[in-house]
């Protein structure tokens, strides 16, 4: 059974990797966007697994965007290396900020992280000469000269990396630590878990992922501006995708981002003038009627089927 699961995963990864060979530029572009949101959704969910609701996704995404673009622009750094720099820069800022804000809990932590994008936006707007101010900066050309296949593979690698990190969180002792913290901090502490250390670790890692995704996005289009880099799209859409797919797992955000990402594009083509309303209603309906997301519902159906099959066999 485990072998079959492994084979399915490998087949999906291979299909994903080979996607540019059988899909045109448009589906490729849509999937690149889906993968961007997938990586952001996974990083948001990883932090949520500690019990901390972070709204800092767009903030660290934007920081990564700026770091990647500006290092290429001013230092002539290789665009691929600059994406890595975007992740490192976001991680350093998260590490420094984490010391202060990870002392906060629940709504206080959430509100503080929500303010981060706002603060970073003000800084970016006011450093006119360095960041280009409110208008932003552009690169002479986009990464790989805009080659959609290479851009797809880049984003695919970033999303795959996020999936691996997420699985690492699920399959190592980190999972026990962060689940214990989420369930009850006092019990976790009395069990010898260094709560602050784990929270800081997860905050830094997830922020680094967001920074890398931001760096890749900025290089993909060759420009950065406060409005685009710190857009609430990079906060709200990944959250909606996680809620739709199912939280506290790797598969949930993956399913959610693929379904909602593709659905959003399909609705736009089908209903040019009302698609956003329909999209919003669908998200609300999923959250209302599938509180554990699509993955939770699938698990429930599988469990029910198993119980029924087991019951039938017992009757025999």
């Amino acid at each position: 059974m485990k072998k079959l699961g492994m084979l399915i995963i490998l087949a999906v990864v291979a299909l994903g990797f080979l996607f540019p060979l059988y899909a045109g530029p448009y589906p490729l572009h849509v999937m690149t966007t889906v993968l961007t949101y997938m990586a952001l959704g996974l990083s948001w969910d990883m932090m949520l697994r500690t019990g901390q609701l972070s709204f800092g996704t767009a903030g660290f995404f934007g920081l990564g965007s700026y770091a990647a673009l500006l290092t290429t622009l001013y230092l002539g750094l290789n665009p691929l290396a600059s994406i890595f720099v975007g992740g490192v820069f976001a991680a350093i800022v998260a590490f420094a900020l984490g010391y202060a804000i990870l002392r906060l809990r629940e709504i206080y932590f959430a509100i503080t992280t929500l303010a981060l994008a706002g603060v970073f936006t003000v800084v970016a707007r006011n450093l006119h000469d360095f960041t280009g101010g409110p208008e932003g900066k552009i690169l002479p050309s986009a990464i790989f000269n805009g080659d959609p296949t290479k851009v797809y593979w880049l984003t695919f690698s970033v999303a795959l990396g996020s999936i691996l990190v997420s699985e690492l969180f699920q399959r190592t002792r980190i999972r026990f630590a962060i689940t214990a913290i989420r369930n009850d901090e006092i019990t976790a502490k009395s069990s010898g878990i260094d709560i602050f250390k784990y929270l800081l670790f997860v905050f830094v890692i997830t922020s680094a992922i967001q920074g890398v995704v931001g760096g890749a996005y900025a290089q993909q289009y060759g420009f950065v501006s406060p409005e685009s880099a710190f857009s609430t799209n990079f906060l709200l859409l990944p959250i909606a995708m996680c809620l739709a797919g199912g939280i506290y797992s790797t598969l949930g955000p993956v399913i959610g981002s693929v379904i909602l990402g593709v659905l959003s594009e399909y609705l736009k083509l089908r209903f040019p003038y009302g698609h956003l309303i329909i999209y919003g209603v669908i998200i609300v309906a999923i959250v209302l009627f599938m509180p554990h997301g699509i993955l939770g519902m699938l698990k429930k159906i599988a469990q029910k089927t198993r119980t029924e099959v087991g019951g039938n066999e017992n009757e025999k």
Partner: peptide, 21 residues
Amino acid sequence: IVDDEMNPSKGAAAIDKLATI
């Protein structure tokens, strides 16, 4: 006509759609 939703990545994908589909 394709809606760009005032979103850079959607606007860019719209060009790909119009050109190739």
